[in-house]
């Protein structure tokens, strides 16, 4: 009986299952801060609510925290940051109607337009990202098993080939959806009420155009102090890190 591999496997499993203990403590603290923020928000103490929600984000990300933080920033009169947090919430939960509604509402209030829909965006949003990921991996492994492993242990028939082909097609479809969803990770939001699009990454550089808080642009490149961005209407230039923030921080 080979005992060592079994012991090693058990040790690995023990490490995996004991690791979340400290994470659970953090989640408890995050949950407490989230509820504190909600209480402050209910009392109209938006600055305290913002602090609590942002402290909660230090422990992890949840669509609800970003959503509530978006509402808080809007109540504080900062449409840019509100839109940023709604987009982060939407990245975590693409199908939430409340997030979509508030995003439309704040954009309308701030007078900025939504960025043009990405190709296949609706298709990618039809399932949560986790479901697409599971489908991609499940399909891939099923296809790998059907084409590589199964013929080694039994006679590969039409059924196994058909299963493998369907699994591969599902995996490729899911990869396509994930790739379409991936296009969102390069977006960012203007935070300053009016930001000058500089032609070079220096503070003294002249500017050719301006951008308004809440406008969404694609991040082409990020430096230490500046982001090189491009807006859907063709405007492009450099914005400071204070004026612009990517939806997905790197």
């Amino acid at each position: 009986m080979k005992i060592r591999p079994i012991l090693l496997t058990l040790l690995c499993l023990a490490a995996v299952f004991t690791a979340p203990t400290s994470a659970a403590t953090d989640r408890g603290e995050a949950e407490r801060l989230f509820q504190t923020g909600n209480v402050y928000y209910g009392e109209g103490r938006f600055e305290e609510a913002r602090e609590a929600f942002e402290q909660a984000l230090a422990f992890g990300h949840s669509p609800a925290v970003h959503f509530n933080l978006g509402n808080t920033w809007f109540q504080k009169g900062d449409a840019g940051r509100a839109i940023l947090h709604y987009m982060r919430a939407q990245a975590l939960r693409p199908n939430d109607p409340d997030i979509a509604a508030n995003l439309r509402f704040v954009r309308e209030a701030a007078g900025v337009e939504a960025p043009p829909a990405q190709p296949l965006a609706a298709f990618a949003a039809s399932l949560p990202r986790a479901a697409w990921t599971a489908l991609a991996l499940g399909g891939f492994w099923t296809a790998a098993f059907a084409f590589l492993v199964f013929p080694r242990i039994a006679r590969a028939g039409l059924l196994s080939r058909l299963t493998g082909g369907l699994a591969l097609a599902a995996a490729l479809t899911a990869l396509l959806a994930l790739a379409a969803d991936r296009a969102h990770t390069g977006l960012g939001v203007v935070l300053a009420p009016e930001a000058s699009l500089r032609v070079a990454p220096t503070s003294g550089s002249p500017s050719e155009a301006t951008a308004r808080a809440g406008e969404v642009a694609v991040v082409r490149e990020s430096g230490e102090r500046f982001h090189n961005v491009r807006f859907p209407d063709g405007r492009s230039g450099f914005l400071t890190r204070e004026e612009f923030e990517p939806v997905h921080r790197r």
Binding site: N38, Y41, G60, H61, S62, P63, A91
Partner: peptide, 14 residues
């Protein structure tokens, strides 16, 4: 605002 925090994740980037 939402009253339940829902699922927490460690990273914003999927």
């Amino acid at each position: 605002i939402k009253s339940l925090s829902g699922t927490w994740r460690t990273r914003l980037t999927p």
